[in-house]
Structures are given as C-alpha cells and as structure tokens.
Design a protein around this nucleic acid. Structure first.
Lengths: 341, 341
DNA sequence: GAAAATACAGCAACCGTTTGCGCATTATTT
DNA sequence: AAATAATGCGCAAACGGTTGCTGTATTTTC
C-alpha cells in the first residue's frame, strides 16, 4: 500500500479542469488576470487533491533555497547551542531554514562543510571559525557564488568581512578593573591559542589596563592553552607554580577556570582568598558548583546568533553589494557568581 | 564588481564546443557512448570554466535532496548534541546533509518543524519527541510523502515505527540491583512526565525489581517532574520530606539528581551516607562537581544517534517497504562517579 | 453601432540536468 | 562488396512551476 506516492501537481489540476497550467499557477497565486470562477474551481480542486507546491521546483526556478548554513566548532559547547537558537529563531521568522555543520575545530572539516553547503546552494552562511583556521581563502571563494557570509564570536582578523563578536577589549577591561579595585595587583591570564584574535585582544587589553593602573607588566603571568585537556592542565600548573603566585586569574572560559580551581584546591589554596578565578561565561551549571569562578563576563550567545542572522538576512535581501561591512561588538556584562568573599 | 554571478552550465560548455548538452552531460559522467576525444575536450573546458554541476537541478530531477531532518527537544542538552554528532558523522559518510530543528519541548513547534522539513523535501527524518507529544498524527502524515522516520531516545509508544532507544528496563534494573546490593531498601524515584514512555518503563521496572527482591512497594516513593525547574524543585522537596526518608534516590537525569543533591545538602544530609543519588547520564561535568551523583547509567547518545541514522539511510535506500520495523534497544552501562563512600 | 478598452486564459520559453531512443558514420564480418 | 555491428552523438521529453507575451471574447465608451 501507499506505493503510488504520486503527489498532485499543478499539471494534474490543469488536466482535470481542462485548462492550462499557467492558469492554474496564476489562480493559486490569486493573480488578477484570472476570473473568479476559474480561481474558485482551481482552489477547490487543489484542496480536494491536497495539492502542495513543490518547493524544490520553485527553489530551482528562483535560484534560491531559503536555507542558511551555520558552521561552528561544536554544538556541545553551550555557547554555541544557544547561539544556534538565536539564529534559528530569526531564520524561522524570515522563512529560512538552517543547516548546521560542526567543524570540531578542524580546518579540513571546516572546508569540507563549506564546500558541502556551497553545493547545497545555501543562500547564506553564518560561521564561527575553528580554532585552527588561519587562512580564509575557503570563505573568500564563496563570493564567486554570491553567498554572503557573516562571522560571529570566532571571527577572522580581516576588515572586509561582516562580523558579530563579543567586545573582548571592553569585557576584559571590566573584569580587570574589577579585580584591581578589589586590590589585586598580580593578575594572571589563562589565554587561548594565538590564532584566535580574541586571545591577542585579551593580551593587549591586559597590558593597556596594567599601564593605566601603573602596575608593572609581567608577561610570565600570561599562559596559553590550545584548549585541549592536556594543554590546559599544563598552563594551569605553570600558572599556579609561579612565584610569587598570582592572586587572581582570568581564564579564557569557564572550563579552563574550573580546571584552575580544581588544581588550586589540590594545592590547598583557599579560593577567593589565596586566589580568585574569573572567566568568560560559557556554562550555566555554576549553580551546582561548590566553587564556581568568582565572576564571569556574560557574552550573550543568543544575541550574537540572532544578530548575525539578522545581518545575514539583510545581506541576502539586498544583494546590492553595499560597500560597507558590518562589524558589531556585543557588550558583555560582569556577573558575580561566588556567594561571599 | 562580481555582479555577473553567472555560473557556467552544461549548456554553455555545449555551445562553446558546438555539441549537444546531452553529449556534455554524458562526457562528464564518463558514459561509454562518448568518444575519448570529445570527453577530453569537454573535461578540459569544464575545468577551465570551473564548472560545477547544479545540485539543486539534479535533486529536483532525481526527486531527492540528500538532506535528512533531525527534530529534537533542545541542543543545549548534551545528550542531544552528542547524538547529533553521531547522526552527522553517519550522514556525511553517506553524502547526506543534516537539517536541525529544536522543538523546545513544544508540540506546536514540533509540528511546524515537521511541516517545514516536509516542504523542504528532506529524504528522511530522525526524531526525538517533545515531552508534550502524545499524538503522533503529524508523523504518520509523512508516510504520504514517502518520508521515512526513525525515532530515537524519546520514542512513541507505537509498535509500527522505527526506533532506537535506551533500554530503560535493563538500565533501571542494573541501577536498582546495584543499590539493593549496597543494602538500600527504601529507594525513591524522581521520575519524568507520564507522557514519556521511559517514565512508565521506569516505574514498571521499579515494581518488578522490588517484587523480585521481596521489598514492599511503596508508590509514595515515586515522584514525577515535568522537568521544569519549579516542578523538579517540588518533587525533590516532597521526596526528601518523606518519612522515613529514602536512603537512595534514582533521578531521571543528572540535572534532577543535582537538584536533589543540592537540596539534601541544605538539609544537612550527608551524601552517600544518609542519602545516595544516582541517575541517568546526560552531563559530563561531573569531574568538576564536589558532589556528583554516586553513579549514572551511561546512555551512549552518540551511538543512539549514529544507529538511528544508519537505519534511516537503509530505509531511504530500500524504499521497498520492508514490512518489519526496527526497534533497537541500547544497553546502558553503570558508571560510578563518587570517589568513596 | 463601431472603435477602444478590458477581462480572461493559453502558448511557450525557461531554470539545469538526465536519459531513452534514433540516426549517421565508421568498423567488422562473411 | 554487401550486410551487419559497433561507435559516437543529437533530439526531445521530462522534473514542477513561473511569467512575458499573445490572442480572443466581452464590455465599455462616445
């Protein structure tokens, strides 16, 4: 049973009613040049037959797919799954659908996904770079296909692209000023890989704020991790064995901060007294944690996603290549987690 | 610049070479009935022009999109984002792409997504039900369009569907036997909403195991939560205020267990002594937790996702409606988290 | 009552590719 | 040398729908 799977087409309606397909098409679109009588007959038969336009055919004709692709490192990070929600919501409102691809922080995978999405003729792309990505040719190639790209969060260090990102400079300033106000003078940074511009910005801002507050800059207080477990462990260890030890540590994200906290406990350091950890917010389980980071900068992933999507939609509509590039900075907010000090 | 966006087509190649499009098409496919000379000329020009077949046109013609849709409650739950990875990996291997839709546990949203995916002509669908879903008509309607559906994790209570799910009966047995062996006699259940078959199975298994171990069944030890924060809080409170209090509690997932643990601490109960919490694994941050659930049953989301995808691919290939339905049960494994007792 | 305007519907091309069938050429067989 | 078989390629339809143009009744206008 159910083996005939012949969906009704406009052609069929035309035959049954003994009129032309163009008339049917126009009737269904309520075109003014079709008589009321005909329109009604068509509408009725269409309903009876359960006719539904074949969108693939339409997309093909219109050279549009109403699909946007999203490429990001990993859905497991809450930051990204929240961002996806923002993208999805905006997309749905505008009748777009969302393809998702995870690069798992692998450039080759990223390229593959981009190619696949190009082949699928997505109308636009939203991308958060893999942490390995240094070269942007595979994105630039998309221009040829007229596929606009909006980057978010992990954006390339180029000026001629559209991007939405957390305002790292501002967020880092807030965080450092907060710590300094609390009396900290020796502040460590558990930074991300050099390839990420956010890492560079963090370091720069660090220097800036230190200078402004007349604190001597000590670059041995800046450690990097490529975010792998081992690399993070090494960085944490180095950081905590510095002499004198920093009294506060800014970690690139909550996971790294938690690693630091765990290690500090092992060393029998008293948290928020001997040493204070702060970070940039990625995870929301802090309420279950005995010792959360003292504070985090909320980065509003949902907002980043939805803004990126809005920009993309604008770009897809006005294919009139507006010469300017969007460069949105999202302001973070400092959130205090720890219950007391 | 770049305003001509005219991608080369087979037609263009044909014109330039003064041959027919059919010849070009066949040449590009290495069809035996095309002469070597012609093939080479075509190939070369195609390379020069950077020709790429228009997949949309091909999909349209072949009435296939090479897209599979995935509908699930929320990407934020790690269980699901891991499952997605499993689905994606299998899909990619088979040249399929993945559309994702989040129902956010809302039936209406679920229906909308299904409709959208049907309109997009996905070739198949993988679904984990919203916790509200009681009626499966919107899935059954897909038969008409010849779109196969494979359910996973949150599956419907129907026998004539394909599904992959965690073996709740077995997993729960393992867990309960484990607790009983440890001496627990008064075991509470923080169960999920009644609509989820897993909840029913949990209750049933509970009774069964109790009977087998000659422990009197006390249904006041079974509390339900709809998984909202408030509902969970209420259930936890009730559970911990029972007299006598249970010495062990099985929670539907880690989040609920953590809520229980937090509440127990507030009541100054000593964990794993006065009361022990166990659950089904959804989250991996246990290593950062001071007091993780004592044990969890790992549900292998990646495996569930990849198996569901494999079944779907099989179904999409053999549209020969095999009369039997897949009904895979994934065996869980008990994982002990707590460091000591 | 004839000319002009309007209303209604059909023709055919088009989007890019695939494929069954037929038709020339050339090559092979006897 | 004639009949047969390969070989190489083109024609045209098909997938489902949209749209500019054309054509014919029917009305309206003066």
């Amino acid at each position: 049973m159910a083996e005939e799977h012949k969906l009704p087409t406009i052609k069929e309606i035309a035959q049954r009613l003994n009129i032309s397909v163009s008339t049917v098409s126009r009737a269904l679109h309520d075109h003014p040049s079709i008589g009321l009588r005909t329109k009604m007959r068509v509408q009725q038969l269409a309903d009876e037959l359960g006719y539904e336009p074949n969108k693939i055919a339409i997309f093909f004709k219109q050279r549009k797919t109403y699909a946007i692709g999203v490429v990001l490192p990993s859905l497991i990070e809450e930051f990204f799954s929240k961002a996806i929600s923002g993208i999805e919501d905006v997309a749905r409102k505008n009748k777009y659908h969302v393809f998702i691809g995870q690069s798992h922080d692998d450039v080759e995978m990223e390229k593959e996904i981009i190619t696949a999405m190009k082949d699928q003729h997505v109308d636009g792309l939203i991308v958060s770079l893999s942490k390995q990505t240094k070269n942007y040719d595979h994105f630039m190639a998309l221009e040829k296909y007229n596929i606009p790209v909006v980057f978010f969060d992990r954006v390339p260090s180029l000026s001629n692209v559209h991007k939405v990102a957390f305002d790292m400079v501002n967020g880092t300033k807030q965080m450092l000023e907060f710590l300094i106000k609390k009396g900290h003078r020796r502040i460590g940074i558990l930074n991300g890989p050099e390839e990420m511009i956010s890492s560079k910005e963090r370091t720069e801002t660090y220097k800036q704020v230190m200078i402004k507050n007349r604190i001597k800059i000590d670059m041995s207080l800046v450690e990097s991790t490529d975010l792998s477990l081992e690399s993070t462990a090494t960085a944490v260890e180095k950081m905590l064995s510095l002499k004198p030890r920093p009294t506060a540590v800014v970690a690139i994200n909550d996971y790294v901060a938690l690693d630091g906290i765990r290690h500090a406990k092992k060393l029998n350091l008293e948290l928020n007294k001997d040493i204070t950890f702060v970070s940039y917010a990625n995870i929301p389980i802090t309420s279950f944690l005995q010792d959360p980071p003292f504070a985090s900068v909320e980065q509003y992933p949902y907002k980043q996603g939805s803004m990126a999507a809005e920009i993309l939609i604008e770009l897809m509509n006005n294919s009139s290549t507006s010469e300017s590039f969007h460069n949105i900075l999202i302001n973070g907010d400092l959130v205090i987690h720890a219950t007391g000090e």
